[in-house]
Amino acid sequence: MELNMDYYYDTNRKLLSFLGQWPYQKPKEKRFFFILILTVLANVMVPQIAQFFKCEDSQCIYQTLPPYMLAIMVLVKIFTFYFNRQQIKVLTDHLFIDWDMFVNEDEREIMKRYAETGRWLTLIYASYVYISTMFFATTAFVPRILDVLFPLNTSRSAMLPYPAHYFVNEEQYFYYIFCHMIFSAALGMTGLIAHDCMLFVYIEHVCGLFAVIGFRFEHILYKQDNPKNMIIKHSVDVYSQHIMFSISAHRRVLQFAVLLESTFTISFAVQVFIVTVGMSISLVQFSMHLHDLTEAMRYLVFIIAQMFHLFCFSFQGQKLINHSLETCDKIYNSSWYKIPVNAQRLLLIVMRRSIIVSTLTAGKIYVFSLESFTTILQTSMSYFTVLSSVNE
Rank of each mutant, 00 (worst) to 15 (best):
V142C: 00
I97D: 09
M111L: 07
N104D: 10
N12D: 14
P151R: 14
F150H: 14
P67H: 10
Q63Y: 14
I97F: 13
L91N: 05
H165M: 15
K89M: 12
F135D: 01
M45A: 13
I281G: 05
I78G: 04
L15A: 06
Q172P: 14
F384M: 09
M381Y: 08
G188Q: 10
R31K: 06
Q86M: 11
M189R: 02
S287T: 01
Y128Q: 12
L387T: 05
F373T: 11
Y24L: 07
L300S: 11
A126K: 01
Q306P: 01
K26N: 15
E392K: 02
D10R: 03
Q255T: 07
F141E: 00
G208R: 01
S58C: 01
I303P: 02
S369C: 14
D57E: 15
T327K: 13
V76K: 07
G317L: 07
I349M: 15
K14S: 08
F136A: 03
E109D: 05
K30V: 04
F83W: 13
I232S: 05
W22K: 10
Y8T: 01
D106Q: 13
L95K: 02
H195G: 04
Y128W: 12
K330I: 00
R352P: 00
M45F: 13
N84D: 03
Q271V: 11
H323M: 05
V386T: 08
E105N: 15
T294Q: 14
R31P: 01
Q378G: 05
D237S: 00
F308E: 05
Q316P: 10
I365S: 13
I78V: 07
K330F: 04
T133V: 01
T80M: 08
H289L: 02
V357D: 10
S246G: 06
V129M: 06
N169I: 15
M159Q: 12
V212S: 12
R13H: 05
F210M: 15
N84R: 00
L259R: 07
H250M: 10
R85I: 09
H94W: 04
L192Y: 13
R113E: 15
Y239R: 09
M159P: 02
Q271K: 04
Q318N: 15
M181L: 09
L387A: 12
Y366S: 12
T327E: 15
E56V: 12
L377K: 07
M73Y: 03
I193D: 10
A211L: 14
V284A: 13
A185G: 10
I78T: 05
S358E: 03
V90Y: 08
I232V: 11
I355K: 02
Y337F: 13
E218T: 10
T379A: 14
I266Y: 04
F32D: 06
V253T: 07
F83D: 15
F178M: 09
K233E: 04
R352W: 01
A211T: 14
C55E: 11
S267W: 00
T361V: 09
T64H: 08
L387Q: 11
G118E: 05
W336T: 09
I303A: 06
E170H: 11
A42Y: 08
T375C: 10
Q241N: 06
S282M: 01
Q318L: 14
V275Q: 00
R108A: 06
T375E: 13
Q86I: 06
E171F: 06
S235D: 03
Y68A: 13
S184G: 14
H323R: 10
K319F: 15
H94L: 06
I243S: 03
T361P: 02
Q224Y: 07
T263V: 07
I355P: 00
